[in-house]
Simulated assay, not measured.
Amino acid sequence: MAASREREFQGTRGGITVREWPLEHPRMLAILVHGYGEHIGRYEHVADALIKAGAAVFGPDHMGHGRSAGDRVLIEDFEDVVTDVHAVEELARAEHPGVPVVMIGHSMGGMIAARYAQRYGDGLSALVLSGPVLGDWTVIGTLLALDEIPDIPIDPGTLSRDPSVGAAYAQDPLVWHGPFKRPTVEAFARALEAIAKGGSLGALPTLWIHGEEDALVPLGGTRTGIAALRGAGLTERIRPGARHEVFNEIDRDEVLAEVTAFLDRALSR
Rank of each mutant, 00 (worst) to 15 (best):
residue 3 A to T: 07
residue 5 R to P: 04
residue 6 E to I: 00
residue 7 R to F: 15
residue 9 F to S: 10
residue 11 G to S: 06
residue 12 T to W: 00
residue 12 T to F: 01
residue 14 G to Q: 11
residue 15 G to C: 10
residue 15 G to N: 07
residue 18 V to P: 05
residue 19 R to I: 12
residue 25 H to A: 15
residue 26 P to R: 08
residue 29 L to D: 05
residue 29 L to M: 07
residue 33 V to A: 00
residue 34 H to L: 04
residue 34 H to Y: 09
residue 36 Y to L: 15
residue 36 Y to V: 07
residue 38 E to H: 01
residue 46 V to H: 03
residue 47 A to V: 09
residue 48 D to Y: 01
residue 51 I to Y: 04
residue 58 F to L: 12
residue 60 P to G: 13
residue 64 G to R: 13
residue 66 G to P: 09
residue 71 D to L: 11
residue 71 D to S: 14
residue 72 R to T: 10
residue 73 V to K: 12
residue 82 V to I: 15
residue 83 T to P: 06
residue 84 D to F: 15
residue 86 H to S: 02
residue 86 H to F: 11
residue 87 A to I: 05
residue 92 A to P: 06
residue 93 R to G: 06
residue 95 E to T: 11
residue 96 H to Y: 15
residue 102 V to T: 02
residue 103 M to Y: 00
residue 106 H to L: 06
residue 106 H to D: 03
residue 107 S to D: 07
residue 110 G to W: 03
residue 112 I to C: 02
residue 113 A to M: 01
residue 114 A to M: 10
residue 119 R to P: 01
residue 121 G to Y: 10
residue 125 S to I: 01
residue 125 S to K: 14
residue 127 L to V: 07
residue 128 V to L: 01
residue 130 S to D: 04
residue 130 S to G: 06
residue 135 G to D: 09
residue 138 T to H: 13
residue 139 V to D: 02
residue 140 I to D: 02
residue 141 G to W: 00
residue 144 L to R: 12
residue 145 A to I: 05
residue 145 A to R: 13
residue 147 D to W: 08
residue 150 P to C: 05
residue 152 I to S: 10
residue 153 P to A: 05
residue 155 D to K: 01
residue 155 D to F: 02
residue 157 G to V: 09
residue 159 L to V: 07
residue 161 R to D: 11
residue 162 D to E: 15
residue 163 P to V: 07
residue 166 G to A: 06
residue 168 A to L: 06
residue 173 P to A: 08
residue 175 V to T: 08
residue 176 W to T: 08
residue 176 W to S: 10
residue 177 H to W: 06
residue 181 K to S: 12
residue 182 R to W: 04
residue 184 T to K: 14
residue 184 T to R: 11
residue 185 V to S: 13
residue 185 V to C: 14
residue 186 E to Q: 15
residue 190 R to P: 00
residue 192 L to H: 14
residue 194 A to V: 12
residue 198 G to M: 09
residue 200 S to Q: 14
residue 200 S to L: 06
residue 202 G to A: 13
residue 203 A to M: 04
residue 204 L to Q: 09
residue 204 L to R: 11
residue 208 W to L: 15
residue 209 I to L: 15
residue 213 E to V: 03
residue 216 L to T: 14
residue 219 L to F: 10
residue 219 L to N: 07
residue 220 G to R: 11
residue 221 G to E: 11
residue 224 T to P: 05
residue 224 T to W: 07
residue 225 G to E: 00
residue 225 G to H: 08
residue 226 I to V: 14
residue 227 A to H: 10
residue 228 A to W: 05
residue 228 A to M: 13
residue 229 L to A: 06
residue 232 A to Q: 14
residue 233 G to H: 06
residue 235 T to L: 05
residue 236 E to N: 01
residue 236 E to P: 05
residue 237 R to E: 03
residue 237 R to W: 12
residue 238 I to W: 04
residue 241 G to E: 01
residue 241 G to A: 12
residue 241 G to H: 09
residue 243 R to T: 05
residue 244 H to W: 07
residue 245 E to M: 02
residue 246 V to S: 11
residue 246 V to G: 04
residue 247 F to Q: 15
residue 248 N to Q: 11
residue 249 E to H: 04
residue 249 E to P: 09
residue 250 I to Q: 09
residue 252 R to S: 11
residue 252 R to H: 08
residue 252 R to W: 13
residue 256 L to C: 08
residue 263 L to R: 10
residue 264 D to Q: 12
residue 265 R to L: 03
residue 266 A to V: 03
residue 266 A to Y: 03
residue 266 A to P: 08
residue 267 L to G: 05
residue 269 R to G: 13
residue 269 R to Y: 00
